[in-house]
Each structure stands twice: as C-alpha cells, then as structure tokens.
C-alpha cells in the first residue's frame, strides 16, 4: 500500500510539473500585459521600467525558471493588477467556491444516486422514464440558461430566493462560510442547484446504467435466493458495487466543479474563484491566471489521489493487486 501510494504521489508531482510548463508557456503566448496595464500616455522610459519591474524583459526560459523557483518557495508571483501575492487573492476567494462546489456535490450525489438507482431498477416504469427524460434536459440545456431560468422563476416570479450575490457569512477557522446562516443559505441554494444540475444528470445516467447491469448479475439473484429483503439487496449488494464507477466520476467532477464554476459564478454574481479568473483574463493579469491554473491542477490531482485511495476501500480486488504490485 505504501509503495503504491508513493508511486501514485510521484505520478501526481509529474502531472503538476507538466502542467506548469504548459500553463506558463500558454499564458506567455496570449499577448503583452503591459499594453493593458500601463497608462496610455506613459513614455518609452516608463514602459521599459515597468517591463523590467515585472520581469518581462527576460527570455522565456529565465522567466519560467524564476517562476518555478519562486513557486517552490510558495510564491506564485504578485498580481499585476492588485499588487498583492496572487495566491493570497485566490485563497480569499477559495472558500466561496469550495462551499458552492461542495453543496452542489452533495445535492448531485444525494439526489442523483437514489434517482439513478430507482431508474435502473425499474427502467420501464413511468418514474424511470421521467427521471431519464429529466436528466437529458439536465445535461443538454446550457448551464447559464438554466441559471437564468432559475433566477427568473425563483427570484423574479416567485420571489422566494435572492437572485445573486453571497449572503451573510460566518468566520470559521479564518474562512468566511455562508451556509451556516439562514441568509447565506438562501443565497447559496440557487447557484448550488445550478451547478449541481449537470453533474446530477451525469450521476443519474451513470448510476442507472450500472444498476441495470448489476441487477442482472448472478450475485444479485443469489442474494434474493438467500431470502434477503429487497432493501438489503439494493442498499448493500447493488449499491456497493455501483459506487466504484460513481466515486470515480464524483472525484473528477468535484475537481472540475471547483475549478470551473465560472459560468454559475458569473450568472449569480458569486464572488468566487471563477469570477476572479474571468476578470484576470480580461486584464491579462498573468501571475493570477497562472496561479489560478496551478492551484486548479493541484486540487484536481489531489482529488484524484484521494479517489484512488478510496477505490481500495470500496473494492477489495484493488487492494490485492496493490500488494502484488
């Protein structure tokens, strides 16, 4: 197990290194930030001074090495726009996005898995067909449009929930969290539902397909022949088997939810990381973009690592092959 973890950890580091090169070179290629940042009336000497101050006069490889060196010391550079460390700015926004993503994740798993199992057990029933039809809407309608529709119905027509922004927050261990207050929760519901809908549809379809498959397996029939209640057959025998692919998808999707909640955050004016990224791209704030992408990579790689460890908890066959490996 330890050998496996060490090897898996090495792979993660490699992925992060490869991503660092791609991100840095990619961002370098998208234009000169000085043109945007500097006062249009500045003279040549001032421009050159700024370029030198930002380190943009050095060749690409030198800039990259400097970036890596600083990154290893936990410094991903200062934002051109805010003049403060980029990581600091992102981390300020991180709790808002994390909170949104986790609530969305809980919603999509908590609703998606039961609905998927139901649709898988009774694929031809009215309920099963409705769930499938609903899930098609869930992942084929554009996310931003769903968000706007949610605002239209629940905020404008019904007036039940606020249309955007983040509610009252509470300080928990230095993080500003809003789901602990009623006002915060009211603000959180719509964006979380919006972010959850797509993932929920995905989970429903995945769970349904796996449930249908598992339901035909001999071990399920054998479990019934043993006289077990259908409840136990479904909740223990089927569910534990289908959780393996579902956990994979949840892991992948949690990463992408944290990283790319951009659309939802924009529609609902949610002050998270996604909105920060959009603003930074508009201003060509290179260190911030790079820091954001690096942090995203880090989060996704970490989640994948956790998922791999979770596998071995869920599937005893994986544990055995690890021992051999």
């Amino acid at each position: 197990m330890i050998v496996y973890l060490v090897r898996r950890f090495g792979q993660s580091l490699l992925a992060i290194a490869a991503m660092a090169v791609l991100v840095f070179v990619g961002v370098y290629a998208i234009g000169n930030p000085v043109d945007i940042l500097i006062n249009p009336e500045a003279n040549q000497a001032e421009i050159e001074a700024t370029v030198a101050r930002l380190g943009l006069d050095k060749p690409l490889w030198e800039q990259f090495l400097l970036f890596v060196w600083n990154a290893l010391h936990g410094d991903l550079g200062d934002s051109f726009v805010y003049g403060r460390p980029a990581v600091e700015i992102i981390l300020e926004r991180l709790p808002a996005t994390m909170e949104l993503a986790f609530v969305a994740l809980i919603l999509s798993v908590g609703i998606g898995v039961p609905l998927g199992v139901l649709a898988g057990l009774k694929p031809d029933s009215i309920a099963g067909r409705s769930i499938m039809a609903g899930s098609i809407l869930g992942f084929s309608l554009p996310n931003f449009w769903q968000g706007m529709l949610l605002i239209l119905v629940f905020a404008v027509l019904l007036g039940w929930l606020p249309a955007g922004g983040r509610g009252e927050t509470v300080d928990v261990l230095g993080m500003q969290l809003s789901f602990l207050t009623l006002d915060g929760l009211r603000h959180l519901i719509l964006p979380a539902v919006n972010l959850a809908l797509f993932k929920m549809s995905l989970i429903i379809r995945l769970t349904r397909a796996n449930t249908r498959e598992a339901n035909l397996q001999d071990y399920v029939k054998f479990a019934r022949a043993k006289g077990l209640s259908s409840r136990r057959v479904v909740l223990v025998h089927i569910l534990k088997n289908i959780m393996i692919p579902v956990v994979t998808i949840i892991g992948l999707e949690l990463g992408s939810m944290v990283a790319f909640a951009i659309v939802t955050e924009t529609v609902f004016a949610w002050p998270g990381m996604g909105k920060l990224l959009i603003d930074s791209i508009n201003l060509l704030d290179r260190p911030l973009i790079v820091a954001y992408l690096m942090l995203t990579v880090f989060i996704i790689v970490t989640i994948n690592l956790v998922v791999d460890v979770l596998y071995s908890v869920l599937d005893p066959r994986v544990r055995l092959s690890e021992v051999k490996g």
């Binding site: 071990y219 022949a225 006289g227 025998h237 534990k240 869920l314 005893p316």
Partner: peptide
C-alpha cells in the same frame, strides 16, 4: 420470500458470479 433461503435454497451455475465480489 419467507421460504427462500430458509426452506428452499438454491445453488447457481457459476461460482465466480454468485458471491458478491465486494462483500466479505
């Protein structure tokens, strides 16, 4: 349901498939 497994039991063809792979 009360009889299944209690008074009438069944053994299946493929022993590789009848036991649930993820349960002890």
């Amino acid at each position: 349901k009360g009889l299944r497994g209690k008074r009438i039991a069944m053994i299946f063809q493929d022993p590789m498939m009848t036991l649930n792979p993820v349960l002890r």
